[in-house]
Design a protein around this nucleic acid. Structure first.
Lengths: 188, 188, 188, 188
DNA sequence: TATGAATGAGGATTCATTCAT
DNA sequence: AATGAATGAATCCTCATTCAT
């Protein structure tokens, strides 16, 4: 029985990666990430076989965390509008509360090395949000549009909104509301 | 450096960069771009002092071209809805007609090396579109929202729509219309 | 370190090393050898203080096994020619029967890390063969040549012959005989 | 017109490689070779795409040089014995005169990265010697043995002899003669 | 004693940029 | 001005060896 592989260390590397990628981009050396995590250069490769591997897992984890945050405490018995607002608020709130995670996620999203599998897993994590949108657009003008298309658009709007909330925190709530209402007009 | 003798060569490098970046991403070596342009490795640095320099100029040029394409033949005497539809169609049409340019632009958009000046210049090129949106949202529910916010959102929707048009060309026109109508509902 | 508890494990490592080195060469990681032996990475260093140490012991063991195989069942009362043929046949037979051992031995033979002591020990193991050669060249044209020189040459011829036997198994016996006769002509 | 790729530099790298490999083995870092050649780390890769590439070219060059040395000044009108002795002497003389080249060649010979093409090219360079052996074994006891087998054996004997000549230079000539006579007995 | 996680030096290769021709 | 060879810092990953458990 040797030293067990420590979950702490794994997540230290993940956290370090978030921080370093947020500030230096995806070109950040693995060595920098390792040092930030307080771990040796080689140890990083005990936990992640490859830099791309680390990046993929990070992508999945962040997307999942984001989805979980958005769906947390969903008031299932409320009407659909209330539920959507809840999700939308929490989604944007998560992104503005953890700007580094959000920034890292933005970088990761355009990385070619993120595999299709990773993207699928991430999308599955978002299925709760998709279902909500499915109900939200029922009987509306976009009821025949492919759901993925709507998900994409809403995603894009979230990104744009988050940018504005971060750059203009004083009016963050207002931006959040404005874009939510815009989405409602789109869908209903 | 950066003292172009032949405009032909400069644009050959630009074109090569689009092609190479579209297929290999921003990590593509300058040497590859130079070769694709039929120009020597060193020559590239006579036209662009730095790789970042080349990338910035490319970013500006592509954004400008996109804006020009969108505004080309604008029916100024038509009503605002007509004009917006015209711009929207041309915009998406440009992106789907030149997928490499669009892809390169997507890559460039997230690059840290794109300076604020470059982004401003690019935004200026988009001012024609902004003005149209300004008129388009007049008296509507978003009349008090910062215009840039609306530009951002519309931009994001364009990106999302383009992705769908490229992946599902058979229904490209429908996607174009659907998202245009969605924007109209948002703004009016 | 190098304090074996179980002889089984030691020889499992040795066998694994033969297999791994034969297929991957001397650059093979100790971890690979350990895994192949069904032993932990660290355990290997309980049995052999160093990779070089393992390699040296393996070298000695293989050379000794080869010599033992060659001399096994030596018909001591037969005439010298018969005895030499016996040894020669068994030698080559061992090499072709255990191609991995032979291949590993070839790799090890050129390794700088094999110490002079190891080489001497290995040579001692070959003394039975040397003695036979000593008698075999008596009164012949090479009776005044340093015995080691003759041993070297015969060794080299064995290597060359083995290569041919392995590559052309159909004629293995013929190659064996041909080279034996050649040696006889050299020595008598 | 840029600085032309210099043949001098290429051969400086080759020479450095010989020296470094002879003393450190094939594990020698390319950086060491480059430094020894008075060339930058990266420059080495302008001349040789890969370490394996360098090693292959070195192998071919050394084998060819060895063959050329052996065949240099061949007395074509002399009888076959004389010619063979000439070749044999020059061969061994080259090896003992350039011990580093010979040592490097020994290392290279067992390297897995040497391609079959390289080995073929090298063998072609040795064809002059093969032809001589072909004539030398005519009508002798090995006239029906595959020629390559004989080449192999002679090669192996050369190696063994060279070792002895280097370790016991005082008797180098004697060793040369002794093994030549041994070969003659083998073949005739 | 056995395990396998931790370490960190080391090494091949890439690439933006410079500079001799 | 154009070329492409030269440079060397930078980076990912490997692996023998150590050591906590």
């Amino acid at each position: 029985m040797a030293r067990p592989r420590s979950e702490d260390k794994r997540s230290a590397i993940m956290s370090a990666a978030i921080h370093v990628i947020a500030s230096q981009g995806l070109g950040a050396p693995t060595a920098t990430i390792a040092k930030e995590a307080g771990v040796s250069n080689g140890s990083l490769f005990n936990y992640f076989g490859t830099k791309a591997d680390l990046l993929n897992q990070l992508y999945i984890e962040l997307k999942s965390e984001m989805a979980a945050a958005a769906l947390d405490g969903l008031p299932s018995e409320d009407d659909i509008r209330r539920q959507m607002l809840h999700v939308w608020s929490q989604w944007l709130s998560w992104a503005t509360s953890f700007p580094e995670k959000r920034r890292a996620l933005t970088h990761l999203g355009v990385l070619d090395d993120i595999t299709v599998e990773s993207r699928q897993i991430a999308n599955n994590a978002l299925s709760g949000i998709s279902k909500l949108l499915e109900r939200g657009r029922e009987n509306g003008p976009m009821c025949n549009t492919p759901l993925e298309f709507i998900v994409s658009i809403v995603n894009a709007m979230a990104d744009a909104t988050i940018d504005f909330m971060i750059n203009d925190p004083a009016n963050a709530d207002k931006h959040c509301t404005v874009s939510f209402d815009a989405i409602r007009r789109m869908l209903t």
